[in-house]
Amino acid sequence: MIRTMFTIAAIALGASIAVADQDPVAARRALMKANGDEAKIGVAMMKGETPFDLAKAQKMFATFEDAAQKMPALFPETSKTGGDTAARLEIWQNMDDFRARFDKFAVDAEAAKVSVKDLDSFKAAFNAIGKNDCGGCHEKYRVKKS
């Protein structure tokens, strides 16, 4: 058990060091990819394709919260282009709003992690976060490249 925990901690540490070491564009893409992978599991549960699993739901919200906390630091002035970024220049013109959105995302994800107990509360929380936090920000600040 202890060994498992150490392993997990080591992997987590390694992952966070790896994220910090990479260039910011790659780092934020990796975080968003992780969000997407988790959201995919969430969507399957929401649609009833897989049974509701509270642990999986909480892991998803925890991943969101973690990403929301790390993301704001990953948009330095030097990272406006390159690395196949989908970031719109509006981000740097509205940095306060952009950061505030991640703050809200983190708060919402944390609240959902605590409050979600069953499929119905999960659906409500996931829908709200998806629409307001994910969709709202993608609409304003992300540009599709392919």
């Binding site: 997407g36 959201a39 995919k40 969507v43 629409k131 994910c134 969709g135 709202g136 993608h138 992300r142």
Partner: peptide, 20 residues
């Protein structure tokens, strides 16, 4: 499902004009 909630099969949320 994507047209209902904006979540694509990759678990990503629509961006840009598609949100509208």
């Amino acid at each position: 499902s994507f047209l209902e909630d904006g979540i694509n099969p990759a678990g990503d949320f629509a961006g840009g004009a598609m949100v509208e």
